[in-house]
């Protein structure tokens, strides 16, 4: 048992020496309680200190350690090596993003999309005292709570064939987050200007892989389809609100 190992084929890309990413193999201990992230940490600590990857909380809430594990976007802290039997396990950076180094991808595009949907409560025409409360009923909370579980891990972008083909697509998480605020009874915006676009909800062809890979069980595909109904009705009936 103690001697059992598993081979990890890890994508390496060192811009100063590699023209394109190459796979490098490492043997790491196979332990039932080890996640893929533990295997990568073992490589970094004991086998090859030059390997670069992002991680933070190790408990599936920070959204930093998303990688492509055997062709599927996964949080590496929540994906166990034992799932892959005798191995090997192929670990690559998230598909659809520019690679900076090894398993680290450039997320600037995603962050710009995220802030473009005004992901905060928009209120107009009031200056309430700081002690003001906005009570919500359980039903009003349920209307958006699911979408508020998003941890911005970008697995949905990596799984989305529309995004991988067209990097300008606003994408699942940003639209789901827009809906998180649209459906909040305290919000007064409907983000029609940023969502009713060819590169926003109308780019989605409802493949549904975003929902399938989401580690927090958010349903971005549903968020997008629901906004299509909103946007279509608002286009047909210009006087209708949301």
């Amino acid at each position: 048992m103690a001697a059992e190992t598993i081979r990890l084929d890890v994508a390496r890309y060192r811009p100063e020496e590699d023209a394109e990413p190459v796979l490098q193999s490492y043997e790491v201990p196979l332990r039932p309680d080890w996640a893929v992230l533990d295997g990568l940490a073992h490589i970094k600590d004991h086998l090859d200190g030059t390997l670069s990857f992002r991680w933070s909380c190790r408990m599936g809430i920070c959204g930093s350690c998303g990688m492509d594990v055997d062709g599927e976007p996964r949080l590496t802290c929540g994906t166990f090596l034992a799932e892959y039997g005798a191995g090997p396990v192929r670990i690559e950076p998230l598909k659809g993003f520019p690679v900076i180094r090894d398993l680290v991808v450039d997320i600037d595009g995603f962050l710009a999309k995220l802030s473009s949907v005004r992901p905060w409560l928009v209120r107009e025409g009031e200056e309430p005292p700081l002690t003001a409360e906005y009570a919500q009923t359980p039903a009003q909370l349920d209307a958006y709570k699911q979408y508020s579980m998003c941890i911005n891990c970008m697995l949905c972008y990596s799984a989305c064939p529309v995004y991988v083909l067209d990097p300008d697509f606003l994408g699942p998480a940003a639209i789901a987050l827009a809906q998180r605020y649209n459906l909040d009874s305290r919000d007064m915006d409907d983000r029609f200007d940023v969502l009713n676009l060819e590169e926003a909800v109308w780019g989605c062809t409802f493949v549904g892989d975003c929902t399938r890979v989401c580690p927090k069980h958010v349903d971005p595909a549903e968020a997008i389809q629901r906004y299509k109904v909103t946007a279509a009705l608002r286009s047909v009936l210009p006087w209708s609100g949301r």
Partner: peptide, 15 residues
């Protein structure tokens, strides 16, 4: 042009 048409096409599709 397409931006304005898309909601209508989608309504026909969804109908």
């Amino acid at each position: 042009m397409r931006r304005r048409l898309e909601p209508y096409l989608w309504l026909l599709f969804s109908g």
